[in-house]
């Protein structure tokens, strides 16, 4: 098994494309960091009357909510959450948008979306390319079982995802420290809990940890889906495009379909576990445990189909 993973790693890291993905991720991270930096510094200089501005902002949101009462409930909920957060800033005299290294890291976890996409690209390619390159026969006419070969490919993909995550973590820590000064891990992070509809705080450190963990769960699901499509349909194009569509359209789609209760059984309705910490809840009655159970079901189903179609089908390539 270790031998097989070693083989797969060799195939991944000897391709120039892999390093191109790493480079693209780092470039986007730097752009994202400077964009964040410039936005924050503008806020601080231009806006000494931030309290007044927040009050105005809340009025605007309230008007919007009245005008657009027909919007799906999760979107209206999101607006309400913004109002509550702004009120909290005013009451406790905390100027919002003041960035520290750790609040930047919280924002940088969004770059994990890119890691997910790139890991999905590798996952979508790792089985399908053996078919298009005619090398699949070589893998299968060996004493190793097809199941082991499939597993080694899956683990290698996850290792690649982990590798990108580690690079991202190190790079964003350094960039964040350089731009905003090191520190800020124990500063409060403000959020509205959907359990009691009031504002809570946690440390920035905890928030970064939770964000990273949730992003990794999302990565695991998307990569597994891409891998399944790659193994089942033997087409990397299909696997990669399906994953991208799923990532970008999936979550919006379920927001708009939120009035139907069957939406809660769709994968994308369950992918964003952050909803259970900061709201808004997508469909009344959905809980964190429900979503985790749904994710587990999808995860196992993906693996089952990948395994079934990879091990049982004839190889004519």
């Amino acid at each position: 098994m270790l031998n097989l993973i070693q083989n797969e790693n060799m195939k991944i890291y000897r391709r120039p494309r892999t390093w191109l993905l790493v480079a693209i991720m780092l470039i986007i991270l730097v752009v994202h960091a400077f964009a964040t930096y410039s936005m924050v510094s503008k806020n601080e200089t231009v806006n000494p009357n931030w309290k007044q501005e927040l009050i105005e902002k809340n009025k605007d949101i309230q008007n919007d909510m009245k005008k657009n009462a027909a919007l799906p409930k999760p979107i209206l909920d999101q607006m309400e959450i913004s109002i509550k957060k702004n009120e909290y800033y005013i009451e406790n005299d905390i100027a919002p948008g003041k960035m520290t290294q750790w609040s930047y890291l919280g924002a940088a976890t969004e770059v994990m979306l890119l890691v997910t996409i790139f890991a999905a690209v590798i996952a979508g390619d790792i089985v399908a390319s053996e078919f298009s390159g005619g090398t699949i026969k070589l893998l299968l006419i060996r004493p190793m079982s097809r199941t082991k070969i499939l597993m080694s490919k899956y683990f290698s993909t996850l290792l690649f995802g982990g590798f990108l995550t580690v690079i991202l973590a190190i790079a964003s820590y350094v960039i964040g420290g350089a731009l905003f000064g090191f520190g800020g891990a124990d500063q409060p992070y403000i959020y509205v809990s959907p359990d009691d509809n009031t504002v809570h705080t946690m440390t920035q450190l905890k928030n970064v940890g939770i964000s990273l963990g949730l992003q990794l769960i999302g990565l695991l699901m998307i990569v597994t889906m891409s891998f399944m499509i790659s193994a089942a349909l033997r087409s990397s194009t299909m696997a990669i495009s399906f994953s991208l569509v799923a990532m970008f359209i999936g979550s919006n789609l379920v927001s708009f379909l939120a009035k139907f209760s069957w939406v809660k059984y769709i994968l994308f309705a369950n992918m964003d576990l952050r909803r259970y910490i900061e709201g808004p809840i997508l469909v009344e009655g959905m809980t964190m445990n429900f979503s985790i159970a749904m994710l587990a079901v999808y995860f196992l189903a993906f693996h089952f189909f990948a395994w079934l179609l990879f091990t049982k089908r004839d190889v004519a390539a």
């Binding site: 060799m10 000897r14 005619g134 090398t135």
Partner: peptide, 15 residues
């Protein structure tokens, strides 16, 4: 105990 080449042998081009 078996060696084989089936059609055009495939390789990993960058390796």
């Amino acid at each position: 105990r078996i060696g084989s080449i089936i059609e055009i042998p495939g390789f990993y081009p960058n390796i």
